[in-house]
Simulated assay, not measured.
Amino acid sequence: LFGIKAGSHWKGATTDIVTHEYVNGRRTQMVDTFRVYDSFEHAFTDYANLIGNNPRYKGVVEAPNAIQAAHALQRGGYATDPRYAEKLVAVMNTLGPLPAAQDFLADAR
């Protein structure tokens, strides 16, 4: 769901996928290893842990709104696409605002 790469610390299942990275400002096709999950719940929980427990994404957690969180995610190095935050905000804008007074926090086990 989130395209989280499987670094050397990842002990779960993996899969190799053709992806695109920006290297020296150029979009480059490559094969990389990504994490595999047993369920959507596990994918969301791992993403919540990655963002919530990694100091490089502190700005995401502390952002006062979704747009600033998207830019903090890019600044944290989540994606190499220089337009990642802009694209994420565009997707959010197509969905419209979330209903008020609901708890949308993921379970960070």
Rank of each mutant, 00 (worst) to 15 (best):
T80K: 01
A108L: 09
P99A: 10
L50E: 04
Q29V: 12
R83D: 11
R75S: 09
A48R: 08
Y57L: 06
V23C: 07
D38G: 15
N54L: 09
G96F: 02
A101H: 15
D38S: 14
E62F: 05
F44P: 08
T19D: 00
S39A: 04
T14I: 05
R56G: 03
E21N: 01
I51S: 06
I51K: 05
T28E: 15
T33A: 09
I4N: 03
N65P: 08
F2V: 08
N24A: 09
Y78E: 01
A90I: 00
F104Q: 04
K87Y: 12
V91C: 11
A79M: 06
L105Q: 14
F44L: 15
V89T: 05
K87G: 11
G12T: 13
R75N: 07
N54I: 09
R27E: 08
M92P: 08
P99S: 12
D81E: 00
V60Y: 07
W10K: 05
A85P: 02
V18Q: 15
L73C: 10
A13L: 13
G52F: 07
V89C: 01
A85L: 06
I67Q: 10
G59R: 05
V89I: 13
D32W: 05
V60Q: 07
A108M: 06
N53F: 04
T45P: 05
V31C: 10
M30K: 11
A108C: 13
N65A: 11
P64T: 00
E41D: 13
I51P: 01
V23M: 05
L73W: 08
I17P: 10
A101T: 12
Y78R: 06
A85T: 12
F34R: 08
A66L: 15
G76Y: 13
